[in-house]
Design a binder for these strands. Structure first.
Lengths: 252, 252
DNA sequence: GACTTCTAAATGTCCATACTTATGCTAGGG
DNA sequence: CCCTAGCATAAGTATGGACATTTAGAAGTC
């Protein structure tokens, strides 16, 4: 049901987006299955087909579902198909070849605005996180290129606060020195995805903004280090970087 | 007017997209001005506001216009605001730092499929173009990462056919050797834009695909060299590269 | 069994209308 | 002169209906 009591200023189609997205995530609509047709959804939520279509448009643009005339709306949330995997033999390779090249390409300098405690959706349980807000500029005093939201385990807070302002090299070499072991292998995924509508609203981006997502997995001998980096450019262009490790990745 | 005689299978909103895009390009709707409100456009084209909005949605997602409630739809085709500019002192810098880093990041190898004569929309009059279709793979025999459509002046056809298969370095060093003069300065823009709907259809990409656009301007002493590179990944990710020079760019 | 034809279903397209909300401007009052 | 209130405007949201087009499968035919 879609009571107006839940109307926290959001339009109806936006609330439907959230509800349907939740169903995709909690398994109500499994990957590969067809979700109910528009007409059924419209009946269930007591709304018009137009509103349902507006919500489904969002899910399609996010790549969650694919729609085909005469067939239906199928869950395709398996993003692995839209991902390019790249392996690195050493961290130096990863940093120098990939991260730093992006820095060079954009020729940007970062400024840290503030640090606050944050909750990472889908993060590992038991791990506390902090959110680092920052801005990158074309040059000192120049115009802002993008906003950065970096999710980092809270146990690195002291490290970041004390050492980062003077840190010269890649940000992650700083974290690595305080991680629970040397990082021996890394895998990087590069994705391009539309920006979530709520982030667009929150940051005042243009509708239709994108994100270029770098997802990186570290593998150490002992544990898991996860950090998530979101770049929200001041304008149309958007980069989102996610850095984490996963147990499944072998050390071979 | 919007006669159905012009109905070449395209839906009405798609035809309106083209018409409005044409007006943006030919100066009917100058940059910075407000285009007529939806209600007037609906009256002019004898269609409903819904259809007009569907066409305007496309223009907004392409970054051509920005819309604000209570104000109107403003032409912002001045993409400089959504563009990051980067200057290079030498071509080597441009190639080695930027193009090649993208190659390294993606670690892709290209294979040329075929070459055909092409028409470049918005290209310089009097210049004949050819279209080079290619594919990039993760590795030889691996899965295709993206399709490439490269628009190059037709006068380079012999050069490309004869020298490219054995060419090792960047593709443009090959073109430069046959251009009308040394390239002394280059400017690169990086944009992120949604993919045009027709290209998505044509290439069978997923709806909501994007393009990362590299627009590069060469400046020689004597003339203008233009080449346009479109990367169409096999899946969600998309890169579009445009390379051309313009008279306005100074050689300073 | 293979092929064609028909049909139901689902999304795509399009319309007319109404109300809501944000914006910019103007008129009025302090 | 500044501030506020009101008003017109234009996009945003939403409804309900209609028809078109595509697809997959069922039914029928050879």
């Amino acid at each position: 049901m879609l009571e107006d009591s839940a109307a926290d200023g959001m339009p109806r189609y936006a609330r439907l987006q959230k509800i349907l997205e939740e169903r995709l995530n909690n398994g109500t609509y499994p990957v590969g299955s067809l979700i109910p047709p528009e007409i059924e959804l419209a009946a269930e939520f007591a709304t018009s087909r137009t509103t349902i279509r507006e919500a489904l448009r969002y899910l399609r643009e996010r790549g969650y579902v694919e729609r085909k005339q005469g067939v239906g709306t199928r869950v395709v949330s398996d993003t692995s198909k839209s991902t390019y995997y790249q392996s690195f033999g050493s961290l130096e390779e990863l940093f120098q070849v990939s991260v730093e090249t992006f820095y060079v390409i954009m020729d940007m300098r970062a400024v840290t605005l503030d640090i606050e405690t944050a909750e990472l959706v889908g993060g590992l349980a038991g791990e506390e996180w902090m959110l680092i807000n920052g801005v990158r500029w074309t040059e000192p005093g120049g115009k802002p290129i993008c906003y950065i939201q970096s999710y980092v385990p809270k146990r690195f807070e002291d490290v970041v606060r004390e050492e980062f302002p003077d840190h010269q090299g890649p940000f992650f070499t700083l974290l690595e020195r305080h991680a629970d072991g040397p990082i021996e292998e890394a895998v990087q995924e590069i994705r391009a995805l539309p920006m979530p509508a709520d982030i667009i609203r929150q940051l005042g981006l243009k509708p239709g903004s994108w994100s270029l997502q770098l997802l990186r997995r570290y593998v150490t001998d002992s544990g898991t280090l996860i950090a998530s980096f979101n770049w929200h450019p001041a304008d149309q262009m958007t980069y989102v970087m996610h850095i984490h490790r996963s147990k499944e990745t072998g050390t071979e």
